[in-house]
Amino acid sequence: MNDSYKHFASVYDELMDVIPYDQYVDLAEEAMGPLQGKRLLDIGCGTGLLSVKFAKKGAVVTGLDLSADMLAVASERAGSLNLEISFFEQPMEKMDIPGTFDGAVIAIDSLNYVKEQEDVAQTFRKIYDLLEVGGVLLFDVHSTYKTDDVFMEAPFVFDNGRIAYIWQTEEGDEEHSVYSELAFFVRNDNGMYRRFDEAHYQRTFDTYTYVEMLNEAGFTIERIFADWEDEPPHEESERIFFQVRK
C-alpha cells in the first residue's frame, strides 16, 4: 500500500474546498456533450470528489490513483451515495484498465506528479489506447511560471481554525520542478493539535513540449486555455488546460 497520503487523505477534502470542481464537470460536458451514459476515466482521482460529481451526472466512472488511502476515502464516498464507481490503484503511466472510454480527465495538476518526460508521454499513449475514436482527454498542469516563480515565493501558510499548514518549497533537480515540504497541524476534538508532515515533488513542461507529446501519441489538439478562463495562456498564467481528441 502506498502511504504517501496516509494522513493527508483525512484532511484533503477540506483543503481542496476552494477548487471549482463543478467547473471541471462543465468543461467535460463542453468537450463531450451530456455525460449521461458516457464512460469516463478519472485519472489521479484522489478522494473521488470529481468522480462522484461525474457519476451524479450519469457518467459510468472509473477512478485511478496511486494512493490506497485516497482510494479508500473515494470508495467510501461513492458507497455512501449508492454510486457504482470502479477504482484502481495504479500509477497513471502504467495504467492497465479493462474496457474503453469516451473521455478521460487528469484534474488539478495530478499529471505533474509524473516527473519523467517519457512517463508523461507513456501516460498519453496509454490514455489514447483506452479511448474510443472521438474520445476526449481533458487535463491541467502547472505552468512553468508557477513552478519557477510563484512556488518560489514560499513559505506559504494557511489556518482555518481546524487545519493549519506551513508550506516550504525549493527548486527540484529537473528544470521546472519543485520540491515541497508541508507541516500540517490538525485540531482534534479535545483542542489539541496533531502534526504530520508531507513531502511532494512535482514537475511540469512548457506548453510546446506537452503539445509535442500529445501529437506523438496521436491526439488532435482542440483547445489550450488557462486559469479556468476561455482565454489562451500568457506569460503569467498559472494553470494550463488541454482539451485533446482521439
Rank of each mutant, 00 (worst) to 15 (best):
P34L: 04
Q36C: 14
Q36F: 13
K38P: 04
R39C: 07
R39N: 06
G44C: 05
G44F: 05
G46Y: 01
G46I: 03
G46C: 05
T47W: 13
G48W: 06
L49C: 06
S51L: 05
V52S: 10
A55Q: 01
A55D: 08
A59V: 10
V60I: 15
V61T: 07
D65M: 03
L66F: 13
M70R: 02
A72F: 09
V73K: 09
S75T: 14
S75L: 15
S75R: 12
S75M: 12
A78M: 10
G79A: 04
G79P: 02
S80I: 10
L81R: 09
N82H: 13
L83M: 08
E89M: 09
E89H: 01
E89A: 08
M92E: 08
M92V: 04
E93I: 09
E93R: 05
K94T: 15
I97S: 00
I97R: 02
F101M: 06
D102S: 02
G103R: 00
G103D: 02
G103I: 01
A104V: 02
A104P: 03
A104M: 01
I108F: 10
D109W: 14
L111S: 04
L111K: 00
N112E: 10
Y113D: 07
K115D: 14
K115T: 11
E116W: 14
E116N: 15
E116A: 11
Q117M: 08
Q117T: 11
D119Q: 15
A121W: 05
Q122C: 15
Q122K: 15
F124E: 04
K126R: 15
I127L: 12
Y128I: 02
L130G: 07
V133K: 11
V133H: 14
V133Q: 15
V136C: 08
L138W: 02
L138T: 02
F139L: 12
F139E: 01
